[in-house]
């Protein structure tokens, strides 16, 4: 059983999945942030492979990716960083990126390397269900990797079933019709969509992402799904941080609704 399955078998509520871009803000922050997230109580980490042209991402994640690339981040280096931190951490790690990167690395080689360094799952938002099913499903399943496909408020029921069938680990529920980093509150229309999907009783757990940025939005999302994913808000916190480990701990505590004391409240 991989770490993803282990997580979902013992925890079904209030799962906090935090996204950040590997190599941002500093090239070698990847491992430190992973360890800090684990210590602070995140359940799951979505690690972004920085990409030159991230179509589905808003300004915060775009800029973090540009910075990481400028810092010298590459896919081989990302794998090395994960391999190193895996010796000290058991938190489930899901790799998120655009399919062109996987294609250039070589699909089979990519999946093998993921397993080797201790990646547990994948999110490849521009890999179509059809292409996955035709060409890559056997490779991913044989490797024992999880993979999460996305659903949106526009996804028809039949297609949601297909997404559920192909996903392993969890289904990624995009909260609103938007790129990442949309701000604000959760509308009644979104709640109706959450509720509709809830009643479908999918096989996979569901995590809600896009526009989740605070304790309030996290708590609301958790009422309708097994947990939620936060990305842009954390990226912004990191970009402004003087000490990324402190900022990480403070951020997770603020989302969990634990009172945040002055920075440095939790230190080794």
């Amino acid at each position: 059983m991989n770490r993803l399955d282990k997580l979902f078998s013992k925890k079904t509520k209030d799962i906090l999945n935090i996204y950040f871009t590997a190599g941002h803000p500093g090239l070698n922050d990847t491992g430190r942030i992973i360890l800090a997230l684990e210590k602070a109580g995140a359940d799951l980490i979505e690690l972004g492979m920085p990409y030159s042209d991230p179509l589905a991402d808003g300004p915060a994640i775009q800029q973090s990716g540009q910075q990481a690339l400028k810092n010298g981040m590459t896919l081989p280096l990302l794998f090395e960083q994960v391999e190193a931190v895996r010796k000290k951490s058991e938190i489930p790690l899901v790799l998120m990126g655009y399919f062109n990167q996987v294609m250039q690395y070589g699909e089979q080689r990519f999946f093998d390397r993921c397993v080797e360094v201790g990646i547990d799952g994948l999110i490849l938002p521009d890999l179509p269900l059809y292409e996955y099913e035709q060409h890559f499903r056997p490779m991913v399943e044989k490797a024992g990797l999880g993979i999460s496909f996305l659903i949106t408020p526009q996804t028809p029921e039949e297609r949601i079933r297909k997404v559920d069938e192909l996903s392993r680990g969890f289904v990624y529920m995009v909260a609103s019709s938007s790129i990442t980093g949309a701000k604000g509150h959760i509308t009644d229309k979104q709640l109706a969509y959450f509720d509709r999907v809830n009643r479908m009783k999918l096989d996979n757990p569901r995590l809600i992402g896009f526009g989740i940025s605070s304790h309030e939005t996290f708590a609301t999302a958790c009422r309708y799904a097994n947990g939620a994913i936060i990305g842009s808000a954390f990226i912004r916190a990191l970009a402004e941080a003087e000490d990324v480990e402190e900022a990480t701990v403070d951020f997770v505590r603020s989302i969990r609704g634990v009172n945040v004391s002055a920075s440095g409240a939790i230190k080794k």
Binding site: P128, T155, R159
Partner: peptide
């Protein structure tokens, strides 16, 4: 019918664009 000319083409889009 999948939008390929030989091995080129297709629709590698995020789910948010799928309906359109």
């Amino acid at each position: 019918e999948r939008g390929y000319y030989g091995e080129f083409g297709g629709a590698f889009i995020p789910e948010m664009l799928y309906a359109n």
